[in-house]
């Protein structure tokens, strides 16, 4: 039985196609503003890579902040549940999950394979990928390099502001004062780790603790968090796709509960063409993104 999970995050769109036991295809590509069209594009690519068609996929679960914009999905599930399922599948001993996404960060508590509590950051970019992106941009370094660079610091700079816009200025001031980029980045990571830690702390941290999402790829952040929390974190081999994986797992679970007839009816309801604002001549706007 083929199933798929698609996770449209604020920054990256991820997809997992599975035959029910193993992953056949997984992809991650930047999210653009036009989710519907994007969903088709990544799905088309993923299907092509394992020589499948939409009709052969029994059940598709969409998750992530753009989950409602996936016309061909059979069901929408929040990324919180999907991350939990993905991590629980990979690491059954994990009790606490930290997900650092592009524009939010979350903590999830798991007990006996069930989600018992969760928390999301509150309308502030601190502790999210967006924060690091802005800082990397301002400092003129590559986003994927900042973690490693921060680990080379011996004397982390003091960054007090956790507002991205003001931290940006602070970083520039420190830079102008002669602090090295490494030290500034270390300061930035420290400040964010402390912010994330106090958010997760509300859930009562229990071992094992896993970190997922784009933030898990930032080694500097992972180390800074480990230092705060006091023990090592579990990092999945491909932290970006845990949400999509969880979605695929849910898809399989749901599909097995349905009769072939029900599955067929579901599939018939899928919309396989993106009718969107951008395709609608009546709306007549010239925005190109």
């Amino acid at each position: 039985m083929f199933v798929a999970g698609i996770d449209i995050g604020s920054t990256i769109t991820k997809i997992v196609i599975s035959n029910g036991t193993e992953i056949l295809a997984s992809m991650a590509t930047p999210t653009s503003a036009e989710h519907r069209r994007l969903a088709f594009r990544v799905m088309d690519d993923a299907l092509a890579s394992c020589f499948l068609s939409y009709n052969e996929i029994e059940y598709i679960v969409a998750t992530g902040y753009g989950r409602i914009n996936v016309p061909f999905a059979d069901q929408q599930v929040t990324e919180i549940t999907c991350h939990m399922r993905g991590i629980n599948f990979l690491f059954p001993n994990v009790r606490t999950i930290i997900d650092i996404g592009g524009q939010d960060s979350k903590g999830i508590k798991v007990k006996d394979g069930k989600q018992v509590d969760f928390i999301m950051n509150d309308k502030c970019a601190a502790g999210t990928g967006r924060f690091f992106e802005q800082i990397a941009d301002v400092l003129g370094v590559k986003l994927e390099d900042i973690g490693e660079m921060s680990l080379r610091s011996k004397n982390p700079a003091s960054i007090s502001s956790l507002c991205t816009v003001f931290a940006e200025q602070e970083a520039l001031l420190r830079l102008s004062e002669g602090a090295s980029i490494e030290d500034i980045l270390a300061g930035i990571h420290k400040a964010n780790a402390s912010r994330i830690h106090s958010m997760i702390g509300k859930l009562k941290i229990e071992q094992d603790v896993a970190i997922t999402g784009g933030g898990a790829k930032n080694l500097g952040l992972v180390r800074a968090l480990e230092q705060r929390i006091g023990f090592p974190l579990v990092v999945p081999p491909e932290p970006l796709i845990t949400g999509a994986l969880g979605a695929a797992l849910i898809a399989r679970e749901t599909a097995t509960k349905l009769t072939p007839q029900q599955l067929k009816e579901k599939k018939a309801k899928r919309r396989l063409e993106a009718v969107t604002f951008f395709d609608d001549p009546k709306r007549g706007s010239e925005i190109v993104l």
Partner: peptide, 25 residues
Amino acid sequence: EQDYSTASLESLRTRFQAFAETISS
């Protein structure tokens, strides 16, 4: 903790959905 503004409501939807998923599982 919310900001008493309809414009910021939509960002809470994921939390309510995830909570619904939590309590129904």
